[in-house]
Design a protein around this nucleic acid. Structure first.
Length: 882
RNA sequence: GGGCGGUUAGCUCAGCUGGUUAGAGCACUUCCCUUACAAGGAAGGGGUCCGGGGUUCGAAUCCCUGACCGCCCACCA
């Protein structure tokens, strides 16, 4: 091949555009069902949340999955590598609210042709425009489509080898059908129930949330020491609470059964200060004598323990907090709201009614400072000034206000009674890295609530459910009407239940639609089933489920991984995948997690422009699974350098005139033995999900053994100076080496490798793209059984290193040949050195190279004893600084 | 409070089953345009392997213990 015909430099951007088109045209990544005897490798790709911001973390983790896909594809497997978009849910709603400055008001009518301007052109202080639910959903769809396009552009540019024919989005009709089918199946099997009960509630988003979406945050609060009275007794005791505003919701008082201070109170009734409500005092093992004053008030509802006490002790439900986070209007004096002084209680409560939690707390604390005649004989309830403390408080992970427990009707999937099965499933999955299995196990063991799947939101998959309305106009929530599977997907707000007409909607004797939507995870936990055609294409489902690999990040083990396992078990009785590969996080250079709110997000596009996709992939591939990695632009530079080196070395190999021949030359055979070992190692590393090891070993061997050593040693022979047999052997070795190296690098550097492959290997092998070529194996090598010891190669490398060192030490230009040099070797390596002498001589361009044995030598055992260069004038080299 | 990871050169990280003198790249210094490569190459300086104990002929590696960083979990009065 004429080297002049090859490009001078590798233009990454042009290559990326050209190769994407070429791959698509060739259908290299298209999934085809496995043929007879062909193994399959199916990947449950994470559908990215498209309303989030694009950053290098996406590039990092998705590249790691692509490496695995490319490896298995080259191994001849039928690779199923789909892509989905998670567009359904709160992040999208919030983005739409901010982007268009709107709020959804479900009571409004749909406005056709609604035109809105993005927020940057609107006064942000103006009240948001209210729009109908249908309009709101339209905007969500519109925005997510734009976001999906930018993700898709990035994935293409990055060279992800997904089959775009397998694209889905969690709000598309197919996914809606799958989610609703999932609901029907679980409902029929008795795994779903609905109940009106205290549920974790976000007062901003005004929706229920599940345990998996809850996080603890340390918040500044204060212990308030509040005196309580005892009914029929002058006694007074003090409780400590961080939530004095819940005093009107107090329904009980409890202390540890062995607590001598309070034992005598059990069975009596306490009187709450201010409101004078008599409440039972009962013992509970859950009360900690060390905390606060050891005795505490139970409210409806301050936290999860309150809910438990409320249930176990059959206490009254005095919910004072509304769904919007404001205190409800209530009336003391009637059945559920007893008081020894209703008039006073109502006067005091009127001051907090309609206030939010913070305001109510301030007001109640003020009230607690005033003398309390009826309950405390004139003492003020507040015993002393509030003591500040920092304590953990539960928040919705996407929310800004603490969660409240509010009594609402919600749907749940029964999981608490299935813990052993769920734990066992986790144990049977291969986790990479292994220690990540603890996360799953600990989460599952600690599960405290069934899965709350209903959300009081808009952009999501609706429940396919209606409720009958009796003749008196009451809604019968206990007998929901569930849609028939053949009608899915449907929105109960548009469709009517069987045997009802639209005219009966909302009428006595008619029906009403459930307005809730599913938790986003209810749909995304079906991704391996959606992608494989569950319930739609039995053959396809049979051939793709369960899958081989779930790649994901560690913070969603408790949500996505956990729920997906649960769904697969409940629907199909199977574990959804064999392997879970957990990618680490990308941290900013200060080792903080990248997030939009911190403003430390690095976007990827400019990096792709500047360094090229291969270099960016090189960076991502260098990190091991599960390891958080600080972003370092230097690694991109190294990747770019590797791409350049590969490009130039390939030009060297392919630019040589002459015909390859039988590989007879000893050093060639020894080099191939070492290369074959590299192939075996790299294959093993990939199989073990240690792609970074495969890359590191391949890169190291390519650089030191191949370009620095073997090429230097064979160069003279490739020019034919030592006869056609030595030349043919060298050229054949170089061809094999190049073909093998390209394929070893192909999963990491898909662009440069396919570019070079197209120069000659494509025609020789018949694989138009390297990504459809076979992963290298022993069969790429000739029979090498008689190759002499590999030690020869290592000794030669040592010798080259020693001579380079002498040359650098003398400051001599490499243009100057060596007149004569002598290498000393210790006895163990002397024979090997003698055997390698001619190759070393050619590599360093010495006219004469002698080897002498020096038994007493240490270290590597090779030293330069004497070296003399051809004079500078003789070689025409310009004057050297020395 | 419990658990899981981590701490190795100025920086980013390897170091797997204990085994020569602990490695790579970047950065820094010096040298070099050579026929694939200056979008490159060669060489050099740089280490309390977080601290303290222990096991061993031998420890970055195994055990105990402490510190710090990050994460996960926890009934949050």
């Amino acid at each position: 091949m004429n080297i002049e015909a090859l490009p001078k430099h590798f233009d990454t951007q042009a290559a990326e555009i050209a190769w994407q088109a070429r791959w698509s045209e060739l259908g290299v990544y298209r999934y085809a069902a496995a043929g007879p005897g062909q193994p399959r490798f199916a990947i449950d790709t994470p559908p990215p949340t498209v309303s989030g911001s694009l950053h290098v973390g996406h590039v990092f983790s998705y590249t790691q999955t692509d490496l695995v896909a490319r490896f298995h594809r080259m191994c001849g497997k039928s690779v199923f590598y789909p892509m989905g978009w998670d567009d359904n849910g709160l992040p999208t709603e919030r983005r739409v609210q901010n982007y268009f400055h709107v709020r959804c008001n479900p009571s409004l009518k749909y406005e056709p042709n609604l035109e809105l301007t993005p927020q940057e052109k609107i006064d942000p202080k103006s009240p948001p425009r209210e729009i109908s639910r249908s309009n709101f959903i339209e905007l969500c769809l519109r925005l997510t489509q734009e976001d999906e396009k930018s993700f898709k552009d990035l994935w293409g540019r990055l060279g992800l080898s997904v089959d775009w024919k397998q694209e889905y989005s969690t709000i598309d009709p197919r996914c809606q059908r799958a989610a609703q089918r999932s609901f029907l199946d679980l409902w029929r099997k008795g795994h779903i129930y609905s109940v009106e009960a205290p549920t974790m509630w976000d007062v901003d988003f005004q929706t229920a949330v599940a345990q998996a979406e809850v996080e603890d945050r340390n918040v500044a609060g204060a212990f308030h020491h509040v005196r309580f009275g005892v009914e029929g007794s002058p006694e007074i005791f003090t409780i400590a609470t961080t939530r004095p505003e819940l005093l009107p919701a107090c329904v009980g008082v409890t202390a540890h059964p062995d607590d001598a201070r309070y034992k005598h109170l059990f069975g009596k009734r306490a009187l709450t200060p201010l409101f004078g409500v008599p409440v039972p005092i009962f013992p509970s093992e859950l009360a900690d004598p060390e905390k606060g004053t050891g005795i505490l008030m139970v409210c409806t509802f301050g936290d999860a323990t309150d809910v438990r006490w409320w249930r176990e002790q059959n206490l009254a439900n005095r919910q004072i907090l509304g769904r919007n986070g404001r205190l409800l209007a209530i009336e003391f004096g009637d059945g559920n709201w007893p008081s020894i002084d209703p008039a006073r209680a109502n006067t005091l409560y009127a001051e907090v009614s309609g206030r939010n939690v913070k305001q109510a707390r301030r007001i109640i604390v003020e009230q607690l400072r005033q003398p309390d005649e009826p309950v405390l004989h004139g003492e003020p309830p507040l015993e002393r000034e509030p003591a500040p403390l920092e304590h953990p408080v539960k928040f919705f992970e996407k929310g800004d206000q603490p969660l409240e427990f509010i009594t609402t009707r919600q749907f749940f999937v029964r999981l608490l009674n299935k813990k052993p099965m769920l734990i066992d499933a986790g144990d049977r999955i291969q986790w990479h890295p292994e220690f990540m299995r603890h996360r799953y196990r600990i989460w599952t063991e600690n599960l405290a609530f069934d899965w709350a799947i209903s959300r009081q939101r808009y952009f999501g998959v609706p429940f396919p459910v209606w409720y009958p309305i009796n003749a008196a106009g009451e809604i019968d929530y206990d007998h929901p009407i569930v849609a028939d599977e053949s009608r899915l997907p449907l929105d109960p707000a548009d469709a009517t239940p069987p045997n009802f007409t639209e005219a009966l909607r909302g009428k006595p004797g008619g029906f009403i639609a459930e307005s809730d939507v599913f938790d986003t995870w209810f749909t995304s936990s079906l991704t391996p089933m959606i992608a494989s055609g569950w319930g739609e294409d039995p053959d396809r489902f049979q051939s793709l489920f369960p899958m081989d690999l779930r790649p994901q990040s560690h913070e969603i083990i408790r949500t996505w991984a956990f729920y997906t396992v649960a769904k697969a078990l409940l629907h199909e009785g199977q574990i959804p995948w064999k392997n879970v590969a957990i990618s680490g996080w990308i941290l900013d250079p200060d080792r903080k997690k990248m997030s939009k709110s911190k403003g430390n997000v690095i976007t990827p596009m400019h990096l792709l422009d500047e360094y090229g996709s291969d270099a960016v992939r090189y960076w991502a591939a260098g990190a091991q699974l599960g390891a958080d990695t600080a972003f370092d632009v230097n690694v991109l530079k190294v990747g770019k350098r590797l791409v350049t080196k590969l490009f130039n070395a390939s030009k060297f190999v392919l630019g040589k005139e002459g015909a390859p021949g039988p590989i007879t030359y000893p050093m060639d055979r020894v080099f191939l033995v070492k290369l074959r070992q590299l192939v075996r190692n790299a294959t093993r590393h990939f199989e073990n999900y240690e792609h970074q090891q495969a890359l590191a070993e391949t890169e190291r061997f390519f650089w030191t053994a191949f370009t620095d050593s073997y090429i230097e040693m064979s160069r003279a022979r490739t020019l034919g100076v030592y006869g056609p047999e030595a030349q043919g052997s060298a050229l054949a070795t170089l061809r094999i080496a190049l073909s093998v190296f390209l394929r070893l690098f192909a999963p990491f550097l898909p662009y440069i490798t396919d570019e070079v492959w197209s120069w000659s290997c494509a025609a020789e092998t018949g694989s138009a793209s390297i990504h459809a070529a076979a992963w290298p194996s022993d069969s790429d090598f000739p029979d090498l059984n008689d190759a002499v010891g590999e030690g020869v190669f290592d000794v030669a490398v040592e010798a080259l290193y020693a001579i380079n060192k002498s040359r650098a030490g003398a400051g001599v230009s490499s243009a100057r040949e060596i007149k004569t040099a002598t290498l000393a070797a210790k006895s163990e390596v002397f024979t090997l050195l003698k055997a390698a002498c001619e190759d070393i001589r050619l590599a360093v361009r010495a006219n004469e190279l002698l080897a002498v044995e020096e038994p007493q030598l240490d270290g590597t055992g090779i030293e330069v004893r004497q070296i003399e260069f051809v004079s500078a004038e003789a070689t025409g080299v310009a004057a050297e600084k020395s």
